[in-house]
Nucleic acid binder design. Structure first.
Length: 504
RNA sequence: GCGCCCGUAGCUCAGCUGGAUAGAGCAACGGACUUCUAAUCCGUAGGUCGAACGUUCGAAUCGUUCCGGGCGCGCCA
């Protein structure tokens, strides 16, 4: 059980006469306590009584928990400090447990899904890392989750791409709106004869992503959908929502909150992307996923409602979430790098990883909320390596390993008297599963680096103030703290995909 | 014009289902290595939370209207 949940349960049982939905713990500043309850304010509205008086009554009821919780009141706020013995006990039990989600949907995460007509760039890297961390996070809480890369290996862009390759190979000029640049030249030069250029690019994508430690359970090719008649499938699945107008075939998304209906098949017989995407998402539904999560660039946000319409029209119980990400602006030496896919003037994802390393690349790409544009300065990420948060975290881990080596053979245990730096660190360790569950529920992987950085910071402070090797009374306790912190750093770094060196 | 996202310290951002004195990191300034790794720590300074109204015991958080920035509004992919 997570720390917060454990405390909440204790409190609920002692306040069973009150509306349980009002019992919600918040985290106050450390001086006030480990948790706080603002139920007095909420009740005062209902009961029309002075919140201070209500708080007094609640505190009165909670005094029975005094062996576990220390309750106090400050101008209506009920502050809760967890007893040190309970902290120690929780921490040692926590060491043996795993976080567990209270739900078990079957989840499909789809992300990156770059067109196989060019190399991956830093923006793809952002989706890849956010998606991958989310994937690992959901697995860590026991979620039933798969991830998938959708390959657009059909359609006009692909034809143009192949025509461009063909032209370059034969020394002809690149067709209008075709593809050129160093990446294409490499494809022409290095592609073996027995693979298609599209498959070769897909393989390049796979390798770039594996360099970043991002693996996919499935690479879903759009071309496999075209083995069936797309329009026929949609016709069969949505007989009431499909109609013909002006020579085109339309889908009635306006029945589901969209602001206009959308075309499935143009009057020239070509299918739109939307038609293929409907069938792709039908495929996801047919594979019995309860929760479909897509990570898309912010420029696709207009697309959400129509896909949602198609999904809900088929199966209302499916949860459809889209994580919208703003693009990444790449900088070097403080100067923005302009990128154009067509001309091939492009810094590839591989270049970035090569220059700043997997750990730093992953950390910086997942650290911020995805709905904020990200300025990614390659020079800064390498030059300021001394102040790099990645090293800060890794250094904490290395320090622990070094201490553990020195403590080899010494007993590990717990004692009662602890000071503030000990305690702050322990409380933060205990909150780890709360953070995992919170980040899972909200699909917000960026909360992890935040937590981990804070943990490292508390550890470094602890390191300064709390010598481990002192005497028989204190040393075993601090060794126990070291193990707990180490476990959390390793576990959390594992989700972020960042290495934890033993020496630095 | 319409829709979505964003506006918090010099910079990059947390905090947003209403709660206590608005928090970090970087940059700046001042301290701490004969003592478990100074890739560290401790301290100082830094704010009309874009603006104005409104809702109420209480607003960075909710509502309305502006201002500023990003992105979309195809029978493109």
């Amino acid at each position: 059980m997570s720390f917060r949940h454990a405390i909440e349960t204790t409190i609920s049982t002692h306040l069973s006469d009150l509306d349980q939905s009002l019992i919600e713990l918040s985290i106050p500043r450390y001086e006030h306590g480990d948790f706080a309850l603002n139920i007095a304010f909420k009740l005062s509205k209902i009961q029309k009584k002075n919140p201070m008086l209500i708080a007094d009554e609640v505190v009165q009821q909670l005094t029975q928990t005094s062996d576990v919780l220390h309750i106090s009141q400050l101008s209506g706020f009920i502050n809760i400090k967890v007893d040190d013995n309970y902290l120690i006990k929780y921490m040692s039990e926590f060491m043996l447990s795993s976080p567990k989600w209270d739900k078990d949907p079957s989840i499909l995460l789809e992300y990156v899904s770059a067109n196989p007509t060019g190399p991956l760039h830093i923006g793809h890297g952002r989706w890849a890392v956010i998606g991958d961390v989310l994937y690992r996070l959901l697995q860590a809480v026991g979620g039933n989750v798969k991830n998938e890369f959708y390959v657009n290996d059909a359609g006009n862009q692909v034809k143009t791409f192949e025509a461009s390759i063909h032209a370059i190979k034969n020394g002809q000029s690149i067709p209008e709106n075709g593809y050129g640049g160093p990446f294409i030249d490499t494809v022409v030069a290095e592609k073996p004869d027995d693979v298609t250029s599209i498959d070769y690019v897909i393989e390049c994508h796979r390798q770039s992503l594996e360099t970043l430690d991002c693996k996919f359970d499935r690479w879903f090719k759009e071309s496999t959908l075209h083995q069936s008649d797309i329009i026929q499938i949609i016709q069969d699945e949505y007989p009431d929502l499909i109609y013909k107008k002006d020579g085109a075939v339309w889908f009635k998304t306006t029945d589901y909150n969209d602001d206009k209906d959308r075309v499935l098949q143009k009057d020239n017989g070509d299918l739109t992307y939307f038609a293929c995407d409907i069938v792709y998402h039908l495929n996801k539904i047919n594979r019995k996923y309860d929760h479909i999560i897509n990570i898309w660039g912010a420029d696709h946000h207009g697309y959400i409602e129509r896909i949602r319409a198609a999904i809900l029209a088929k199966k209302e119980s499916v949860t459809f979430s889209v994580i919208l990400g703003q693009l990444v602006n790449l900088f070097k030496d403080g100067e923005p790098i302009k990128m154009s896919k067509r001309t091939g003037n492009l810094i590839e994802l591989d270049d970035v990883i090569h220059e700043i390393g997997v750990d730093a690349t992953r950390y910086f790409l997942v650290e911020k909320r995805p709905d904020l544009p990200l300025d990614f300065d390659m020079t800064k990420a390498t030059m300021t390596s001394m102040d790099n948060p990645v090293y800060y975290i890794q250094y904490a881990h290395a320090r622990i390993c070094s201490l553990q080596k020195k403590c080899e053979g010494l007993p590990e245990g717990a004692h009662t008297a602890i000071n503030d730096a000990d305690r702050k660190l322990m409380v933060h360790v205990c909150r780890y599963y709360d953070v995992l569950l919170d980040a899972s529920n909200s699909l917000e992987p960026y909360k992890l680096p935040q937590y981990l950085h804070e943990l490292a910071s508390l550890f470094h402070s602890f390191y300064q103030k709390c010598p481990v090797i002192v005497d028989d009374a204190i040393t075993p306790h601090r060794i126990a703290i070291l193990s707990a912190v180490q476990k959390v750093i390793q576990h959390c770094s594992g989700i972020l995909g960042i290495s934890t060196p033993e020496k630095m």
